[in-house]
Design a protein around this nucleic acid. Structure first.
Length: 481
RNA sequence: GCCCCCAUCGUCUAGCGGCCCAGGACGCCGCCCUUUCAAGGCGGAGAUCAGGGGUUCGAAUCCCCUUGGGGGCACCA
C-alpha cells in the first residue's frame, strides 16, 4: 500500500492536512506500506514563500514523518509538481492526439460570459466547446482569444462515470453534467486534476485519500485513468472538519485551522494526534486515549464515518491535560521551558524540577506555564490589596496576622511544607481565626491571587526568603480600613 | 440554479434487524476529598435515533420521500 498527502504551499499548513496524513501514515504502517509527501505547487499565483518549509516543520512536529518526499527523496521523484512539468505536458499532448482532449483559446472574458448565460438559463455552467474541432487559425478569426491556449478534456455527452469510495460506497455522476475540465493551463502548468492523476499513478499510489470537497471532481480523474488505460487506485474521501457553525474549517475564521497554532499554544503532538484520530473514527473497543502505535494496530479506512465532525477544542484541552498529567516531570520540564523563556521567565530560581510538581495536574496547555508559574519568579506581584483581608476579618486583624506570620516564617526551624502547615495551623488557632481565613491571606500574599497551587508546598518552593519578602510587601499593602 | 455527500445526547461517537424505551467520552450539574484551584472518586440531567411513509414477526439499523446541514460547479488546490 502506498498513500500520500499532497498539500499546496499556499500558506500556513492546515489542520486538515495533518488529519488525513495521520490516517495515511497509520494505514501505511499497519499494512507495511509507504507514506509519501508530495508538494502540489502548480499554482504560481498562490505560491507563498516559506510555506513548504512550514509544512515540513509542522508535519514533523506532530510526528507524521514521511518515507518519500521532496526533501528525503525516494524512487518515484521528484516529489514537487513544479519539477515534473514535462510529464504532464506529454500526457496532455497524448490525449489531444487521441482526440480525448482539445485546445481552447477562449479568453477569460468569454468563458465568464458563457458561464453566466448558462446559469441564467438554469443549466449547469459548462464550457460550450466553442474551440472544439477548430484549428488555431479558424478559431482566431472568431475573436475573443488569448495568446496561450489551454488543453481541455472532451467529456462524453452520455453515460455515467462511477467509482467506489472506501468510506462512502458507490458514487456516480452523469457525464453530461461534467464540464470540459482544463488539464493544462495557459502557462504550461497542469491543473490539479491532471497533475494528481499523473502523479498518483507514477508514484504508485494505491489509496487516494483527500477531503470530501474532491468528490465532485473525482469522475474527471476516473475518466483520465480510463482513457490512458491505467489501473484505478482506491478512493477514500474523508469527512470535512467543521467550524462550530458546521461550515468547513477555514483559516480565516479559526486560528486553530492552522497547525502552528497548536504548537504555539502548548498542545502536545501526541494529544493532537489522539484527538484527530477520534474525529470520524473510533477504536473498535471504544478506547479514547491511545498512542499512535495502538492506533496503527486498529486503523481502518472503512471504519471512518461519513459526516463532518465539529472540531471541539474543549475535548482537545481535556486530552492534552491528560497527556501532560501522564508525562514524567523531567520531560515536562524540557517541553515547557521554551514557553517560560519566551515569557521572560528564567525558570532557574526556583528550578523547574521543584516548581513543576505544583502545577503538573493543573496544566492543560504548556502555554499556560507562564501564567501558572509566573509568581514564583517575580518577588513582587500585582494584586488587589483588598484580597488580603479575608471574609469576616478586618484590616487590623489582617495586619496582625501578617505580622505574626512573618515571625513564624522567620522562626521556622525548617521550611518543609508539613512543618509550615503545622506552624500556621497553630497560628490560626492561637489567633482564633479559621484556617481558611489565614491561609487565604497567605495565599494572596505569596501567589498574588486567590487561586494557586497548594499553599505550603508553594511556600516550600519559594523558600524562607521568598516567603518573608512577599509577606512584608503584603503587610505594607493591607488597606487602611 | 444544477450536481454530489451527509443526518444518534450541546460536542465527538458506539450501534451495521431482535442483546437498545440507545452505550461511552468531553462539557454541564450535584456530592465526596479539600486551605483556594485543579486532579481523583461517586452520582445525575441530557437523544420521541431530523420528520413521514414503506419492507419485516421485529428497524436507530434496509428502501423511498420530505426537511435540514455541508461540499462542488475556475486557466485554485
Amino acid at each position: 500500500m502506498r498513500l500520500r498527502i499532497a498539500p499546496s504551499p499556499t500558506g500556513d499548513p492546515h489542520v486538515g492536512t495533518a488529519y488525513i496524513a495521520l490516517f495515511d501514515l497509520g494505514v501505511a504502517r499497519r499494512n507495511g506500506g509507504r507514506f509519501i509527501l508530495r508538494i502540489e505547487d502548480t499554482d504560481q499565483g498562490r505560491y507563498v514563500e516559506n510555506s513548504e518549509r512550514n509544512i515540513f516543520d509542522s508535519l514533523r512536529w506532530i510526528g507524521l514523518e514521511w518515507d518519500e518526499g521532496p526533501d528525503v527523496g525516494g524512487p518515484y521523484g521528484p516529489y514537487r509538481q513544479s519539477e515534473r512539468l514535462p510529464r504532464y505536458r506529454e500526457f496532455a499532448e497524448t490525449l489531444v492526439e487521441q482526440g480525448k482532449a482539445y485546445r481552447c483559446w477562449c479568453s477569460p472574458e468569454r468563458l465568464k460570459r458563457v458561464r453566466e448565460e448558462m446559469q441564467a438559463r438554469k443549466e449547469p455552467p459548462k464550457y460550450d466547446r466553442f474551440c472544439y474541432g477548430k484549428s488555431e487559425a479558424e478559431r482566431r478569426a472568431l475573436g475573443e482569444c488569448t495568446e496561450r491556449p489551454v488543453v481541455r478534456m472532451l467529456i462524453p455527452d452520455e453515460g455515467v462515470t462511477a467509482f467506489e469510495d472506501l468510506i462512502r460506497g458507490r458514487i456516480e455522476f452523469e457525464n453530461k453534467l461534467i464540464d470540459d475540465q482544463v488539464l493544462l493551463k495557459g502557462d504550461g502548468f497542469p491543473t490539479y486534476h491532471l497533475a494528481v492523476v499523473v502523479d498518483d499513478h507514477e508514484m504508485r499510489i494505491s489509496h487516494v485519500t483527500r477531503g470530501e470537497e474532491w468528490i465532485s471532481s473525482t469522475p474527471k480523474h476516473v475518466l483520465l485513468y480510463e482513457w490512458i488505460g491505467w489501473e484505478l487506485p482506491k478512493f477514500a474521501h474523508f469527512p470535512l472538519l467543521r467550524n462550530e457553525n458546521r461550515s468547513k474549517v477555514s483559516k480565516r475564521k479559526n486560528p486553530w485551522a492552522t497547525l502552528p497554532w497548536f504548537r504555539d499554544n502548548g498542545y502536545l503532538p501526541e494529544a493532537l494526534l489522539n484527538f484527530l484520530a477520534l474525529l470520524g473514527w473510533s477504536m473498535p473497543d471504544g478506547r479514547e486515549v491511545f498512542s499512535f502505535e495502538e492506533f496503527v494496530r486498529e486503523v481502518d479506512l472503512e471504519r471512518i464515518s461519513t459526516s463532518g465532525p465539529i472540531f471541539d477544542l474543549n475535548k482537545l484541552d481535556w486530552l492534552n491535560g491528560h497527556y501532560i498529567r501522564q508525562m514524567p516531570l523531567d520531560e515536562l520540564a524540557e517541553r515547557i521551558r521554551p514557553f517560560l523563556e519566551r515569557a521572560g521567565l528564567a525558570a532557574e530560581d526556583p528550578p523547574l524540577a521543584s516548581a513543576l510538581p505544583l502545577v503538573h495536574e493543573r496544566l492543560k496547555r504548556l502555554a499556560e506555564g507562564p501564567e501558572l508559574l509566573g509568581f514564583l519568579y517575580q518577588p513582587v506581584g500585582e494584586y488587589d490589596p483588598k484580597l488580603l483581608v479575608p471574609k469576616g476579618l478586618d484590616a487590623g486583624t489582617t495586619r496582625a496576622l501578617l505580622d505574626a506570620s512573618i515571625a513564624r516564617a522567620n522562626e521556622a526551624p525548617s521550611f518543609g511544607h508539613a512543618e509550615l502547615e503545622a506552624a500556621f495551623r497553630e497560628l490560626a488557632t492561637e489567633r482564633g481565626v479559621k484556617t481558611g481565613q489565614l491561609f487565604m491571606t497567605l495565599r494572596v500574599a505569596c501567589t498574588y491571587g486567590t487561586v494557586s497551587p497548594p499553599l505550603f508546598e508553594t511556600m516550600e518552593v519559594l523558600g524562607r526568603e521568598g516567603v518573608v519578602t512577599r509577606l512584608e510587601v503584603a503587610l505594607a499593602r493591607v488597606p487602611s480600613e
